[in-house]
């Protein structure tokens, strides 16, 4: 039984389809990412999956149970790391885990026996009695992650787990998340960080305007949707240059401000040409998930 299966999911606010019919299925022990710009429907999808809001249509099976009909029983087997921290500021680190464990109806003894290991996992082993108010942003996130594991969930749901963290704190969270599949925990996360998705997700779905516009492993998506190499050309007259020359060297190109993005299968002829140009700088790199994402969802701001 898949830890999560979603089919034909639709959700409407007013006349607006926030989710316009999406489906995906998670395999046990994999990390699955929902990727999309702001307003793509990522958080709404998670709320539907957890039974916190009624979809207009669709079928959701979470931990083997139909949602929202048996959402409560399903949530007992799921851990959630929300987008904004909502730890209890009046409690110590350990009290936060204890009180949260009680919400699952777990016996006091069971919760207390799990706390030391979870604090160790979160790198907070020496801080059991510390007040939440004294923790850094990264520590709070790690504690929220530990809190989500108090019920030993089959599925861990994370909504933008590293938004607002510095690089050191992000890497530490990633390292912890990477260890979860080995413990048999399946992970569903939303993010708009491509590096995060590429590093963590075995498979992902790119969401835009409430629809899944692409789905697959990161490298598959890159192979399927984009030329393998990218040459970024910078300079005041990059746009002019692109207008006259780019089409001759690149299968596809885009201009954004003073940068021209050239997508190519063979970069050598373009690079040879560029070395002869005055006033242009360039960067040659392999195509990545961000290129796929921008190709599929466009470069306009989502505000």
């Amino acid at each position: 039984m898949a830890p999560l299966r979603v089919a034909g999911l639709r959700k409407r606010y007013g006349a607006h389809d926030v989710i316009a019919g999406i489906g995906f299925e998670l395999a046990r022990g994999e990390c699955f990412g929902l990727l999309g710009p702001n307003g793509a429907g990522k958080t709404t999808t998670l709320r539907c999956v957890l039974g916190l809001t009624q979809p207009l249509a669709g079928e959701i099976t979470l931990a083997g149970l139909p949602v929202p009909q048996q959402a409560r029983a399903a949530r007992a087997r799921v851990g959630v790391v929300p987008q904004t921290d909502n730890l209890d500021p009046d409690f110590s680190v350990a009290e936060n885990l204890l009180v949260y464990g009680r919400y699952f109806g777990l016996p006091e003894r069971t919760i207390r026996s799990r706390i030391p290991e979870l604090l160790e996992f979160a790198g907070l082993g020496a801080r059991a009695q510390t007040s939440i108010r004294e923790l850094s942003g990264g520590m709070k996130r790690r504690l929220t992650l530990a809190r989500a594991l108090i019920n030993e969930p089959e599925l861990l749901v994370l909504d933008e787990p590293t938004t607002g963290l510095d690089p050191q704190a992000r890497h530490l969270i990633w390292e912890r998340l990477k260890g979860l599949p080995q413990r048999g925990v399946t992970v569903l996360l939303t993010t708009h960080f491509m590096d995060e998705a590429e590093r963590l997700c075995h498979r992902l779905a790119i969401l835009d305007g409430g629809r899944i516009v692409a789905q697959g492993a990161p490298h598959e998506l890159i192979e399927a949707h984009i030329e393998p190499q990218v040459v970024e050309v910078y300079g005041e007259n990059a746009a002019n240059w692109a207008g006259t020359h780019a089409a001759g060297y690149a299968a596809r190109f885009e201009v954004s401000g003073e940068t021209a993005y050239c997508y190519v299968s063979q970069a050598e002829p373009l690079l040879a040409h560029l070395t002869r140009q005055v006033g242009l700088r360039y960067l040659h790199r392999p195509a990545n998930l961000e290129d796929v994402f921008l190709k599929l969802t466009g470069r306009e701001l989502r505000e």
Partner: peptide, 14 residues
Amino acid sequence: VQRTWDAILNTPIA
């Protein structure tokens, strides 16, 4: 403000 309710609603508590 503290979003304590949100945290609780993610558990089996309705």
